[in-house]
Design a protein around this nucleic acid. Sequence first.
RNA 1: GCCGGUGUGGCGGAAUUGGCAGACGCAAGGGACUUAAAAUCCCUCGGUGGCAACAUCGUACCGGUUCGAGCCCGGUCACCGGCACCA
Length: 802
Amino acid sequence: MSYDFKTSEAKWQQRWEEAKIFEAQDDFSKPKFYGLVEFPYPSGAGMHVGHIKAYSGLEVISRKRRMEGYNVLFPIGFDAFGLPTENSAIKFNTHPRILTDKNIEKFTSQLKRVGFSFDWTRTIDTTDEDYYRWTQHIFLEMFKHGLVFRDTALVNYCPHCKVVLSNEDSQGGKCDICHSDIVQKSKDVWYLRITKYADRLLTGLESVDYLPQIKQQQVNWIGKSTGAFVNFSVKGGEEGETLRIYTTRPDTLFGVTFMVIAPEHPMIEKYRDQIKNIAELDAYKEECAKKTEFQRTQLVKEKTGVRIDGICGINPVNGKEIPIYIADYVMMGYGTGAIMAVPAHDERDYDFAKKFGIDIIEVIKGGNIEEAAYTGDGDMVNSDFLNGFTNKKDSIKKMIEVLEEKGIGEEGVQYKMKDWAFNRQRYWGEPIPIVHCAKCGMVAVPEEELPLRLPEVENFEPGEGGESPLAKIDSFVNCKCPQCGGDAKRETDTMPQWAGSSWYFLRYIDPKNDKALADPEKLNYWMPVDWYNGGMEHVTRHMIYSRFWHKFLFDIGEVNTDEPYAKRTAQGLILGPDGEKMSKSRGNTVDPNEVIDGFGADVLRTYILFMGDYGAATPWSDSSVKGCKRFIDRIADLVGMVNGEGATPALESAFHRTVKKVTEDIENMKFNTAIAAMMTLLNQIYEVKTLTKDELYTFIRILCPFAPHVAEEINEQLGNSDLLSLAQWPTWDEAKCKDDVIEIVVQINGKIRARLNIAADAEAADAIALAKEQPAVQEAVNGKTVVKELYVKGKLVNIVVK
RNA sequence: GCCGGUGUGGCGGAAUUGGCAGACGCAAGGGACUUAAAAUCCCUCGGUGGCAACAUCGUACCGGUUCGAGCCCGGUCACCGGCACCA
């Protein structure tokens, strides 16, 4: 019989809300659990099933934690600043505030229909001025602590969105939002000095429990390398002029036959007059500037460059004169923008040397430098005092000693991570609370003037040159300098979308506080986040940014933990039924509302967790949803089979095993096998067609985190007046998980020849003796020599014969 | 190119981490109930051979370790994700 999920689900959602059972208590005496999911961007399209999957993991865990007696904080909010809303506001000629409110309302009602146990009293919205007031506060603190700076730089610019994008937002040379091609543009840019925290972001990973692939991605993103800086004298330059390079292999210094500097390297400007072929260099530079960084890095095959005529470098270890080239395979943004080239042992330098006919000197044995660069390890040769070194660690160490002794270089560290370009020329973001004063320079807006509100504007279109729409609002722009009181102008750029999400988990702890971003006592109790789940796409950007902010807040004493997240996991994508990534354009999306309408929230929740490994991408299947529908309906019918109290002998061990399995599987996010175990138990109950009240009560408690509505409904039918969502999580008896008599297999040389029933705790000798009595075994052993006899308790007997 | 991951029936996926491969679910086929359909219930369901018990092959491919390998080791191929002239 199909149960009436529509009435039931609405009823229980209302009762939970009335009873306030999912509201976290600031009762510091209780053990706490802070479960965090990545808050959604409230788009106009509404939620998709991927959102449901992203929240369902910690939903189950949070519900279980409550039943285990924890004080649980499981909040939700909205990360609502950003381009899509602004763009559709422009398109529909409305205000992003109106759209945002509408979208949040839509998301809220959808989330509530699923029955998520979020604490709705702590909801936050990053576009709320009471929220972004604190985002601005953190920015100002960073500004005061020297972590904010401004620089002119070649930036990634999206001509379609008319915004400057960070490297992170323009991966692959495409705009993250509209996927247009990015162009390079020179602009004044705000930066956050995240590189100052690079090493701590790296070492901090040792103290947290993130999935290994998440840690690995962060390590790669930070991209630490160790090596040395070496100063090459420049012949033709000023007295004492040096060209500083960074290398990870200083021990190959004797193999250096040329140097390369980036086209933007300042040395070219400095020696314009000395350089004889400056026109040629200028032409090359112009050619490079036309290419986007993406194009530059795409041209892997063919090396280009121009030799600088008029100055050259001097190898500091042997005094040899070497030519200097400019080439775009060297980037200004990494290291010093200059390299020493060792063509024998670097593929890029090798290609370049071959093309330009430069000498190639072997310094590491092991390859054939006539044919290709040798990048492996080997004995050092042609290297003076390094000759005879066989180990790269030792030779690098020795070279650094010599460099430091002679004062021509030193050990050094480099990171691939760059400083964070922290501004957008758009309206729908947090205004940067800085005033530009002709006399005082950049001045922080005083704390008491926060929030610095977004002004009302008629027109959100960005300016043609990439100016912020705010720049057109005179009443916003013109102001007095907080320091000298003179006329000044406000900064008109806004913060990037990543700002609001870099600290939101702190605000949930104390969302209404108007004195601080959160009360220190409450922070002390709730932080760190015990378990954070989200998408793999956020493990580098959002996670590294928020860890950076958190470490900064820790340094200035505003939070009590160095790391914000104790544990981090990630869910896999839900693919379309065709196995492809879901997208509107492909037409393979699934609307969660339709599933709830047709089958109920419990079925949707159960299916999403049952469909496959939580961490893996899995295609959606409409027909498989029906399997979960049957599961829920069959559970609803169990009430009619209840007969008596205590335990049903035929089911007793099955119950203990299932409770154990479900309990353990939830902790490991193996929701699919937890549900499979409950299905197996259900099948076993249907075989005997009877169970006791106590057993059903146990069943619905382990079911509750997955399908809470039907579980509550059954609980009520059992005559219990307390809400099941607050019931105690069941325990199991390890001894009762196992049967007394079990079936084991008998193998001959690893092949199964017989099966036998035996006491679970039987001794090896008895088991082997019993195995040998089996006719099939006797036949197989007959006439052969028994070499070995093995007994694996509870599993098998294996007899090895010859 | 580098880093990470994956490869198991018609499909989604299990396999206590070296011990009965295919749990659980879907789809499919057969049957029951029904005037009929849906729903529900029962049976079958990796390949080959056999009426059958059973035999035999089988976890991308090749090889190895082991009494025993989907799992460990060496090599190959394919696909997915991330990074990428990072010195």
